[in-house]
């Protein structure tokens, strides 16, 4: 399961980043440091987000799922950030639409077909507004992991 890969060191809370670029750099940098991604990952991520934005509006909660090409990835992983104040992403479906995002799930995708369940794990969380609200009000990394595991057990 993907969330067993979710390390406390890859969960960023109370972030005060002011723009999309800053938070992508921070999270992408951590995935590189932890051995999930290659040095080219952050640059590729920024470019991908520019060309194909990943912001989503889930019943008024702004979520983004930035990711990039597998050739910048070493192993499957996920990083999570919850921001104090939202930063602006562009909407996945329509780049003309802005989304105020506080929850960011960054994916390191290596082989999407083999790891479909990883992707599905992330979507299961994203598609549950109640869980998103819980994550936004969670106290710490351990809480976050608990909220996600509890949700998984209900599936």
């Amino acid at each position: 399961m993907l969330w067993e890969e979710l390390k406390e060191s890859l969960i960023f809370l109370n972030g005060e980043e002011k723009c999309e670029k800053d938070i992508l750099k921070k999270m992408g940098g951590a995935l590189i440091c932890e051995g999930y991604a290659k040095d080219t990952y952050v640059q590729a991520l920024l470019l991908r987000e520019k060309r194909f934005p990943t912001g989503l509006d889930i019943n008024g909660i702004g979520v983004a799922i930035p990711h990039t090409d597998p050739r910048h990835v070493k192993k499957e992983g996920v990083a999570l950030a919850i921001l104090k104040k939202p930063v602006t992403f562009r909407h996945m479906e329509d780049e003309g639409v802005r989304v105020s995002v506080r929850l960011i799930f960054m994916l390191a995708v290596l082989n999407p077909e083999a790891h479909l369940n990883h992707l599905q794990c992330v979507l299961n969380i994203i598609q549950d507004t109640e869980v998103l609200v819980q994550l936004l009000t969670a106290g710490g990394q351990k809480d976050i992991i608990q909220i996600i595991k509890t949700k998984e057990e209900t599936l």
Binding site: V109, P112, E113, L119
Partner: peptide
């Protein structure tokens, strides 16, 4: 199709 044929199109295809 999606931007990179990596993540979201896999979900949609499935």
């Amino acid at each position: 199709a999606c931007g990179g044929a990596v993540a979201t199109s896999t979900i949609a295809a499935n």
